[in-house]
Design a protein around this nucleic acid. Structure first.
Length: 527
RNA sequence: CGGGCUGUGGCUCAGCUUGGUAGAGCGCUUCGUUCGGGACGAAGAGGCCGCGGGUUCGAAUCCCGCCAGCCCGACCA
């Protein structure tokens, strides 16, 4: 984590009283003091979401939802560009459907919400209860994922190889009854997209799985400014029922890994379970080959932990709900109208500019609250550029521009024209800076380890009672056995994040057993 | 599901041991002074102290029961 800009720090100190009545950073605790608590405070300070009265469920507030809407819009375009279309399937899945695929049941049964009744009645004590007479003959499960119900539907749609491929995505909510919820990272209900495709051949399905993984990788890098490793999950981390699970893994600022997206090659497992059969080109009956792939609102949590600083979140411009916020400075009533008029003109001029092929997103904050308070709110919300215009700027034809990736008090005075024509470049520079910083962090904490001792040292904090930020990604040889994986997990809470896809893997010997290993895999602690 | 803890204005909490019908900070409202700035002052609104029962002249405070939430473990996008 680089230090804040020196100029900004000096300037900030200059404005504070000796005894510092205000914290030096907008968020307490700082990241290095208590990362999990810092995360929660950022979610609150940036007004992204809050916990609801329903345990484990969150209310996503407009600023947070705006981020999700941008993710949806961009990804949706990428899905369409690769030939997919959207559809919608039911939220309720008959219990018997879930039971069809053995591994799938085992994976999800423990965290399913179940609907058993379809009517309420008075309980005689002023409350309500499910009516005993209205019990469903077959309970419905609130979807934890939709493979089974979509599979059952595809089975009806597919008769011939001519009906394939089916390339469908749905945007939906899903429910997994988690024991330990954390806003955006692990909630009982979350929003996501799930792509479900069915293919004629294994190769085609495998290519689809890989293609969508690459879509996620591109999205993460180009839009979220988060570099990711792409690879395959080990057997222990695989999606229940999948033949192969591919993933993108990101590192966030406490050096833990987070799975940011997954793409599964399901083989014929679900086709067999759901009866997706077709008559082939050679007039034989075949099971289809299916895939599924998804990303969720967890990406918002990833974004926070990847780019946030001690003053709040920092949004990559490409995904920010507003890229520029204009803050009118209206100290005197007599100049107020002129300032507001200039603000409108500036907004229009900025919106006529494009960034990443889209009009620049501009918001004007006309609220009548203290300028400092207002400024800090937008800092905490992570808007990339803040622009102040006051009466003096009107006279000079200038604006005061602050970048979120620079010091809080740092302002650049530009002519209005220069700012408008340069806004796209500034946004590009911020976007690139975030990616560069995240990449540097990841690379600095990705190490190659060759012995068991090094490995255990790397993942052991110096203070076990209050673990400091430590560890990172460890590239090490592994013999491929589940026993080793589970031992490491039990000892250190470290898991295999992925088996990286490389062109020329370097063979070696497992650092735990000495067995031959075809390639290094990535170990890390994870969310 | 095991272990620890907590429920008091919107938020964070004090008060409870030694019962006498409620406090602080922040936030909110109004007024004023400030103000290219997360300022200051004054006034004000807001609480059947988680729920039910018991002891008592009297319970936020003591006793019993229940409910809810948080933290630590097992599970997880």
């Amino acid at each position: 984590m680089p230090a804040p800009g020196i100029a900004g720090t000096v300037s900030a100190l200059f404005h504070l009283p000796f005894f510092m009545s205000q914290p030096a950073t907008a968020i307490t605790p700082r990241r290095d003091e208590d990362f999990p608590e810092w995360y929660q405070q950022v979610v609150r300070a940036a007004d992204l979401a809050e916990n609801s009265d329903v345990r484990g469920c969150m209310v996503i507030k407009p600023w947070g939802y705006g981020i999700w809407e941008n993710m949806q819009r961009v990804l949706d375009g990428m899905f369409k560009a690769t030939g997919h279309r959207n559809a919608y399937f039911p939220m309720f899945i008959p219990l018997s459907y879930l039971a069809k695929e053995a591994e799938h049941v085992e994976g999800f049964a423990k965290e399913c919400a179940v609907v058993t009744h379809h009517r309420l009645e008075a309980d005689g004590q002023g409350g309500l209860r499910p009516a005993p007479s209205a019990e469903l003959t077959e309970p419905l499960v609130v979807r934890p994922t939709s493979e089974t119900i979509i599979g059952a539907t595809y089975a009806k749609w597919v008769q011939s190889y001519r009906d394939l491929p089916i390339l469908i995505n749905q945007w939906a909510n899903v429910v997994r009854w988690e024991m330990r919820p954390r806003v955006f990272l692990r909630t009982a209900e979350f929003l996501w997209q799930e792509g479900h495709t069915a293919h004629e051949t294994e190769q085609e399905a495998r290519e689809e799985t890989l293609q969508m993984l690459r879509v996620y990788e591109t999205f993460a890098r180009e839009y979220l400014a988060i570099p990711v490793y792409v690879g395959e999950k080990s057997e222990g981390e695989r999606f229940p029922g999948a033949v192969q699970t591919l993933c993108i893994e990101a590192m966030v600022q406490d050096r833990k890994a987070i799975q940011a997206g997954t793409s599964h090659f399901l083989g014929q497992n679900f086709a067999k379970a759901s009866g997706i059969e077709f008559v082939s080109r050679t007039n034989t009956r075949e099971f289809a080959w299916t895939t599924s792939w998804g990303v969720s609102t967890r990406l918002i949590g990833t974004l926070i932990m990847a780019h946030g600083d001690d003053d709040g979140i920092q949004l990559p411009p490409r995904i920010a709900p507003a890229q520029v916020v204009i803050l009118p400075v209206t100290p005197k009533p007599e100049t107020r109208d002129a300032v507001l008029k200039a603000v409108e003109q500036l907004a229009a001029a900025l919106r006529a500019q494009t960034f990443g092929g889209e009009p620049v997103r501009v918001e004007i904050d006309r609220r009548d609250i203290g300028g400092g308070t207002k400024n800090w709110e937008w800092i905490k919300k992570g808007v990339p550029l803040r622009v102040e215009i006051g009466p003096r700027d009107l006279e000079k034809g200038s604006v005061a521009v602050s970048r979120r990736d620079r010091g809080v008090k740092e302002k650049e005075f530009l002519t209005t024209d220069a700012f408008v024509s340069g806004v796209s470049g500034m946004l590009e520079s911020i976007q690139a800076g975030l990616l560069a910083r995240a990449t540097a962090l990841r690379d600095a904490h990705t190490v190659v380890l060759n012995t068991r001792e090094e490995f255990y040292r790397f993942f052991t904090p110096s203070n076990p009672d209050r673990p400091e930020i430590h560890g990172g990604f460890a590239l090490a040889h592994w013999n491929g056995s589940r026993e080793v994986e589970e031992q490491v997990k039990a000892d250190l809470k470290v898991t295999i994040r992925c088996i990286p896809m490389e062109d020329s893997p370097e063979p070696g010997r497992c650092i735990f057993t000495g067995d031959p290993s075809p390639r290094r895999v990535i170990f890390a602690k994870s969310y």
